[in-house]
């Protein structure tokens, strides 16, 4: 089983970590270099973890478990106005990123108000391309209950955050509700506020575990990191994409950040050692996010094999 971890250390000799991960059959999902520090998001077979730990301690680096690595989470606010940003929304997104997730912040066009709040088909489709969504609401119980219409059409697990305590039975469409967040006009810095952020991470972790269990019932033909590796190797132009993460991993596929019109055929033609093309084991379609390519790996029940 692949274990998600995050390496933080100096740029000097970090190539040794990358090489070791590749030699052990793991994957480097993301590499962020900031001045003299580098952060690597890694998936590694759990039985090989001691070898990596030994190397990391030799390099004086830090290795922590990143439970959300390899997932994309949507952080949805009613708008991108000053009422919701930057405080609670940025805090939550930042906290999710620290735990390894790739977050996308989505501000709805008409999500404000109690009576007038709405989500359109495009926005719902965009949220549905993620593995889970965190909806950030305010301080009024009545509004939070009323705003259920915003996420009723979302098919991925939705974690709702807000201020007051609300019984789960009052929010039947939410996967979980995390209270004591709400609308604030300052950054989260008190212990209680940070505790609430931890609760969101736990809730997202539970939502993803459920999604993983659902996928395990009918396993994917191949794993998303393997697709990522193959695409990276056979469509090298992806490395020149301006996106900070040129290939984003989801639980059931990848998002390739290249124009669909130009590169969809080449992505479909990506060949695996087993002799199959990506187009045979996955659907390659335009993403709702910009003009990117969305790859969804088909389950074994559709292709009849796994590799």
């Amino acid at each position: 089983m692949l274990e998600p971890v995050m390496f933080t250390g100096g740029v000097y000799k970090h190539d040794m970590v990358v090489e070791l991960v590749e030699d052990l059959g793991g994957y480097v999902l993301q590499k962020n270099v900031s001045q003299s520090e580098v952060i690597l998001l890694i998936l590694l077979p759990s039985e090989d973890m001691p070898a990596l730990k030994a190397l990391v301690s030799e390099l004086r680096g830090e290795l922590v478990r990143a439970p959300l690595a390899g997932t994309e989470i949507a952080v949805v606010t009613p708008t991108l106005a000053i009422h919701h940003l930057p405080h609670s929304a940025c805090d939550i997104a930042e906290y999710l990123r620290r735990n390894g997730a790739k977050t996308n912040m989505i501000g709805l066009a008409r999500g404000v108000g109690r009576e007038i709040a709405q989500i359109n088909e495009y926005e719902a489709g965009l949220v549905n391309e993620h593995d889970a969504a965190v909806f950030i609401f305010g301080n009024f119980a009545d509004c939070i209950k009323k705003k259920e219409s915003l996420y009723r059409s979302i098919s991925v697990p939705v974690i709702v955050t807000g201020g007051p305590e609300i019984q789960a039975c009052n929010l039947p469409y939410a996967f979980e509700y995390v209270p004591t967040v709400g609308r604030v006009a300052h950054r989260a810095k008190k212990a209680t506020e940070l505790g609430s952020l931890d609760k969101i991470i736990d809730a997202v972790g539970r939502a993803l575990d459920k999604a993983r269990t659902d996928i395990a019932k009918d396993p994917l033909t191949t794993s998303p990191p393997r697709v990522m590796d193959a695409v990276r190797e056979q469509v090298p132009e992806v490395e020149y994409s301006f996106a900070p993460l040129p290939i984003a991993l989801d639980l059931n596929g990848v998002r390739v950040k290249l124009p669909y019109e130009e590169y969809a055929d080449r992505v479909e033609a990506v060949k695996f050692d087993e002799g199959v093309n990506l187009g045979e084991v996955a659907t390659v379609k335009p993403s709702k996010m910009k003009d990117y390519i969305l790859v969804r790996i088909l389950p074994a029940s559709e292709t009849g094999f796994t590799f």
Binding site: G138, N139, F140, A141, D142, G163, P164, E165, G182, R183, V184, A185, H186
Partner: peptide, 14 residues
């Protein structure tokens, strides 16, 4: 909305 009342007070002050 007792919670909202308390939070709004803090928010306005901020």
């Amino acid at each position: 909305e007792p919670f909202g009342e308390k939070k709004y007070r803090e928010l306005i002050m901020d």
